[in-house]
């Protein structure tokens, strides 16, 4: 349990650094560390497959692309867009709403009962695969179609319009 608290502390610590870091590239690097602590959380919960997939997909692919884009656009002080007053007011209202939500959530806070899995080895590849392809086959396939449609949409956005080009 102490391992969990230590890793949870690290997760929160790095996620705070993500939003306070001045340079966007440093921010992404802290985000990578945050995702790494998530991987450790999965391992602590005996979900090895989820851990390694989180490791490969988020740390190894998505964040590399984030870093790639940030390095290319080269953000610095001069190119930072000036924020208009309207944006500042909208930001204030949004932040205030979020604060209220958090305070309300804290008011209703009680220590929940720990959830006991009927099968502690659920996170291992074999068991996870059996459950995904037997009990949850339809949602699994539907979500893959969703990802495919997102991909097709991205390609469509990226290709030039033949009329304007």
């Amino acid at each position: 349990m102490s391992t969990f608290y230590f890793i949870a502390f690290l997760s929160i610590f790095f996620s705070i650094l993500v939003i306070t870091a001045k340079s966007p590239v440093h921010s992404i690097l802290y985000l990578i560390l945050t995702f790494f602590t998530f991987t450790i959380h999965y391992i602590l919960m005996n979900a090895q497959f989820l851990a390694v997939v989180n490791f490969i997909v988020y740390m190894g692919a998505i964040l590399v692309l984030f870093l790639y884009t940030l390095m290319l656009i080269n953000l610095n002080k001069e190119s930072e867009p000036r924020k208009s007053n309207l944006v500042k007011i909208a930001g204030f209202i949004g932040g205030a709403c979020f604060l209220i939500t958090i305070v309300a959530a804290l008011k209703a806070f009680t220590v929940s009962q720990p959830v006991l899995l009927s099968n502690p080895n659920l996170g291992l590849v074999k068991n996870l695969g059996k459950i995904l392809f037997n009990e949850f086959l339809l949602p699994f396939e539907v979500s893959s179609v969703l990802l495919l449609s997102a991909m097709v949409g991205a390609v469509l956005l990226a290709t030039k319009d033949p009329k304007t080009a």
Binding site: Q48, V52, V53, I56, M59, G60, A61, V64, L124, V125
Partner: peptide
């Protein structure tokens, strides 16, 4: 039991 994926993860890192 996810040995190959571990190697794959290390490579991507």
């Amino acid at each position: 039991n996810v040995g190959i994926l571990y190697i794959f993860g290390v490579v991507s890192l």
